[in-house]
Design a protein around this nucleic acid. Structure first.
Lengths: 235, 235
DNA sequence: GGATCAATTTGGTATAACCAAAACTGGCGG
DNA sequence: CCGCCAGTTTTGGTTATACCAAATTGATCC
């Protein structure tokens, strides 16, 4: 962490002030920021600096600045956090082994989640899973829809945790790994195989067997990875 | 994900161009960026826009811009990614339950890691763990040093994964949660208790018992959390 | 060759001005 | 009273210029 790469810059003061104002709730989600000319009067600085500050806050994800529109305050959520890294992650995935490393962490996290689900999924969680699984089965012949329901099935595990961080992480995974996914051949045959894998995971959870659930999940994702490799070669 | 909150902005073009140049290796790690005045000639734009682009790249973590110094190209690593989120995460931890949510994911991840360690830690991994554990024991009476060796012990698990993403994540955890730890009372008594917890985890790994290892880890972290709550109240 | 100091370059900031798009205003018609 | 439309004002995006202080460079002198 090196928040202080730069010090002594005038903009930092404004950034801090506005940041505090958001944190304290004096500027709430959805509020438009004061106009640049107002801010420059209020803080007695040039518009140059104001714009610099606004841009910084925008990059941090604290405000949303569409061109030619008044910047809007956005109290950050975990999704915002994900957004701010996306740029860098793009570069990271370019590096050799980048995708593999990311996917591996996904396997790890999701393995932990299915274990957890097997341990303490509630009745409602189970129905949610069952519903997602059924939707998935019914989409076997529609590859586009299958992809969607597939994602949805997996996302149930992230929701079960009741921890808002995890759904955000799942969105990150699907977004960042989507480029690989989307370009893979998708056939009903393959869909069926994936559905069966989902079904196996579900069964293991029904049986309250964490080990079996984890193994089924790992098999499933390992196969998915094998497919990726078959399509793209080693990456 | 909405990378394109703004479109039609002149700076975006420069950002993209420089980003590509880094990706392609025409600008390598450590290189200084051309001066602002050079860039404005090269791209035929005003210095304002150049500075805007530079700032954006700086926020993305692709270049390091200390004030009054020439910006330096930084090929991003996973650490860079962590840095870029740090700002937002600060706000998130402020929100009620923020710390709790983050800590919970840490428990989850680390539980998965100790399982993995119990399953397939190599001889070298085990010695690394043993070494860290011994260092930890010898620091019981020096709370400052204990904190350090404590962190080090835990970090071994993140290293065992042989996945560069995870050590970065561990650094993120320790950095973000440090404000809580640092302000907690630290006594040799407490240290000893924590050491024993570490020891229990280690033993379970020696026995190649994932379930026991996970349980020991969870107990350990749950207790740590209880300490946090005792100190700060519900957060 | 290495230390020293002046000249130059460069980043940080301030002003002023212009344009085009958004936001506001007031009047008109229903 | 409300909705719609045109004209005016405000506002963000961009350019250009200038000034300062710190960093860099280069010539100079030991």
């Amino acid at each position: 962490m090196k928040t202080g790469t730069r010090s002594g810059r005038a903009a930092d003061q404004i950034i801090q002030a506005l940041e505090d104002r958001i944190r304290a709730g004096r500027l709430v989600d959805g509020d438009p920021l004061p106009s640049e000319r107002e801010l420059m009067e209020e803080f007695d600085i040039s518009r140059t600096v104001v714009r610099e500050a606004v841009q910084a806050l925008s990059n941090k994800g604290l405000i949303e600045a569409r061109p030619r529109f008044r910047p809007v305050v956005r109290k950050p959520g975990f999704d915002t956090a994900i957004d701010t890294v996306s740029g860098v992650v793009g570069h990271l995935l370019d590096q050799p082994g980048g995708v593999r490393n990311l996917f591996e962490t996904r396997i790890m996290v999701e393995a932990a989640l299915v274990r957890q689900a097997a341990r303490d999924a509630t009745r409602d969680d189970i129905s949610a899973l069952k519903y997602a699984l059924d939707e998935n089965r019914m989409a076997i012949n529609d590859s586009e829809l299958f992809y969607l329901t597939d994602t949805r099935f997996h996302s149930v595990f992230f929701d079960i945790s009741r921890n808002p961080v995890l759904p955000a992480i799942q969105r990150a995974y699907t977004t960042w790994l989507a480029p690989q996914w989307r370009r893979m051949p998708r056939l009903p045959d393959r869909n069926r195989r994936n559905y069966e894998a989902h079904s196996a995971i579900f069964d293991a959870i029904l049986m309250r067997d964490p080990d079996a659930a984890e193994e089924a999940l790992r098999d499933h994702l390992a196969e998915a990875w094998a497919q990726v490799q078959a399509t793209f070669g080693d990456i």
